[in-house]
Nucleic acid binder design. Sequence first.
DNA 1: TCTGGGGTCCTAGGGCGA
DNA 2: TCTGTCGCCCTAGGACCC
Length: 419
Amino acid sequence: MYALVDCNNFFASCERVFRPDLNGKPVVVLSNNDGCVIARSNEAKALGIPMGAPAFKYRNLFEKNQVNVFSTNFVLYGDMSMRIMSLLTEMAPEIEVYSIDEAFLGFKGFELFDIEKYGKKIEQKVYKATGIPISVGFAPTKTLAKVANRIAKKFPKQTQNVYVIDTDKKRKKALNWLRIGDIWGIGRRFSKRLEAKKVFTARDFVDLSDAFVRSEMSVVGLRLKKELEGEETMTLEKYSPKKTIATTRSFETMYTDFEDIKERVATFAITCAEKLRKQQTHCNSITVFVHSNDFRKNLPQYSRNILIKTEYPTHSSADLIRYAVLGLKTIFKQGYHYKKAGVIVGDLTRENEKQLSLFSRENPKHQPLMQQIDAINQSIGQNKVKFACQDLGRTWKMKQEKLSPRYTTQLAEIIEIKT
DNA sequence: TCTGGGGTCCTAGGGCGA
DNA sequence: TCTGTCGCCCTAGGACCC
């Protein structure tokens, strides 16, 4: 038996924990740069605000309905997530943290337990300790646990936020109810293609032949079908280090000048290098990309990326800046309005398993230099040490006009209770 | 004026060595 | 020495997730 635990409207719920006056009121959380809506409370959903709604188009609706708008506060959400995951770890023999607000729990050997009762215990404990409401779905496979969770969330009154699929009758009933596009692993493209073939529900999907699903949707689709039939094809995944690390951003305005983008790309490379050092890995390749503004149809569009193999495994900021700028020089074209760029490092290997090269021209000073930079940044604040290619006078910051305090991680921002 | 960011996995097709 | 086949590796692109 697996359980899927999912936090309800997670980011919006995190904001509400420290602002109980917002209970019962519409709350939305915006993406970086306050661009679009990435989380909504139930009240905001009821107002018809869709996921991904551009904030500027919905400003009037927000004002008219007194919607409480927040910028993303990932420091807060990350910390709340950590607290919830550690509680869940205590309550289940196995756990796979699937995302910031979701975890699969493994309950092998619990068949004789009253699992529904236990689910309610989990729900109550998490709510009491953190203030975050969760839904719990139990089923014999991970995909069915996702389905069970959806039912728990959709019918809170009947399920009390916990639902168990433990009989074939319940499984079939759930599959009849679930629309094709709501199956975990079937996105927009596949659901459109399947609907064109009169496949509208999960039940219709499992009624298709294995051969058809295999040919149309590869082994991924076939695995999904088996899971929905109750046959386990996915197990809990152990923690594994990242395979790629990315730093990408949309710009506050469109850039046309090479030097402006160069400064941004170099800064992204530095961030990637810091992330590499933090997880004690080197990269062996780096990808740089630039993108014009998709939404400005009247402007010429351009988008390109380039992958460069590094000469040796590295996590030196200086090395990565050099490669990133080299890549940018190759792909940059004059005459376009650039809106987005990014750096992605890949082919990661562990720091202590470095493949040395006889002809390597690695600068031996980089390693101790990076150590010192990290130490200084750690003691006096992130990004205090800058590289020459960065604009020292630059005050560029993400637009975050509605940022809430970092209640749980900064003493100066701790919650105040007025009596 | 203003539309996010960070990941994973799979497949097709070309290059290339055995 | 030439040619065909097989299988591995790599990359780009497409699909998905949160």
